[in-house]
Design a protein around this nucleic acid. Sequence first.
DNA 1: ATCTCAAAACTTGGATACAAGTTATCTATT
DNA 2: AATAGATAACTTGTATCCAAGTTTTGAGAT
Lengths: 241, 241
Amino acid sequence: MDDDLTPLTRLEGKAGRRLADQVYERLLDDIVSGALPPGTPMAELDLCERLGVSRTPVREALIKLADVDLVRIYPQSGSVVAPVSREAFGEAQFIREHLECALVAEAVRYMDATSLRELNELIEKQKAAATPAEFYAHDEAFHQTIARTSRHPHVWQVIRQTKIHFDRVRHLTLIEDAGHIPLLIAQHQEILDGLAACNEAQAVAAMRRHLREVFRRADGIFARQEEMAQAEPRTRARRRR
Amino acid sequence: MDDDLTPLTRLEGKAGRRLADQVYERLLDDIVSGALPPGTPMAELDLCERLGVSRTPVREALIKLADVDLVRIYPQSGSVVAPVSREAFGEAQFIREHLECALVAEAVRYMDATSLRELNELIEKQKAAATPAEFYAHDEAFHQTIARTSRHPHVWQVIRQTKIHFDRVRHLTLIEDAGHIPLLIAQHQEILDGLAACNEAQAVAAMRRHLREVFRRADGIFARQEEMAQAEPRTRARRRR
DNA sequence: ATCTCAAAACTTGGATACAAGTTATCTATT
DNA sequence: AATAGATAACTTGTATCCAAGTTTTGAGAT
């Protein structure tokens, strides 16, 4: 049993954009979602024939993935999906908590009817979400909307990028225990209440509580994962230097 | 007068690393330092013959530069050095202030004799610096050392990346008015004093004062630059879409 | 002289060929 | 059988080639 699963199918519905970007997003999703688990070999030629494109776009995608430490490239040797590191996980939380709490504080100053309605709608959509994946999309949109309201759109880009390592663990919490989703929605509501009341301290406190709740759950999952990983020898795939 | 200056010389002293990385760092430095001003055409083939390498490494470098918004790539049309944007400048300040103040607060908990000595030495080197460029190097090292001390090395990577847009403006302040360097060194000393005394509030306050001082000066330069830019028509170089 | 339109001279995106280094494999030797 | 070494089968890095789109340019008509 030497062959890995092949969750990759050829990308055909090209949205007109660059192939490299499509490959990047595809691989990004598959790594974050866990479809391509840590250690999975990522040979360029292999990905080429699976995705039906040449090396150039695949290579660009891999380099970008290596830039955000989702893939490890060992020159002339091989590339693999990077391990889920507890350090990266913790640093992502650190960055997110500090930046996003600061964003909420700023957002209070710029709240208007449009943002209020938008955020309310997103919470409604979260309540109506049928699947964890659907909830997750509206969750992300909620936080991004707050960032946009605070007039610091680029800060969200930074959060989004570091959040990747957080999400690698988090997606497990959403599928393992979807029961806590209502709690998260309630916390979103608290944040929005603070914003609507133009109460900076309340909004920031609610956001911090929320982010730490998400972190606490993910961290629990992570610890369990680490134990399991320790049990398995985990040989397979090429190695360093 | 159609030709631009050509501050690029062939890279020869290859440090064994990938050509793409060498090209990236070279172009990054030249853009941040202002040697390649905003609007400068960055045609791949042109850069190829100037640097003495093929399109592949040049292309990879340009893509990475575009990822951090230092270069704008217009497919099938052309690439140029991105303009210095006040938005990016302000967002960089936002991110840096919030993250670095948080880092200092954390650093207080992990201060030890080694870090203390290291930071003291860097301040001495700053005092002894003969040129603004030399001071800048030790300045950066000082801040990075604090980040390392706080056990969040990756956070510094994030700051470093966003700081790029800040430094595009800042290098002008260092060459225009090197006289304020002693003030910056004094502020570094204040931060260090706070860390040495394990006084979190003092260290954070000193850091915030310091960062805002740097921002204030750079912002002044920026405003003046904007006026000058308004005076010049600034035609030249290919355009969008 | 000005405008229209076609064609040539760019540009970057993608595919392929080649180079250089690493790892696995297989053979010969002990 | 076990080991050492050569060799073949990978891998990524770099160079070049082709494709596709954009911009310029210039010729011809008005």
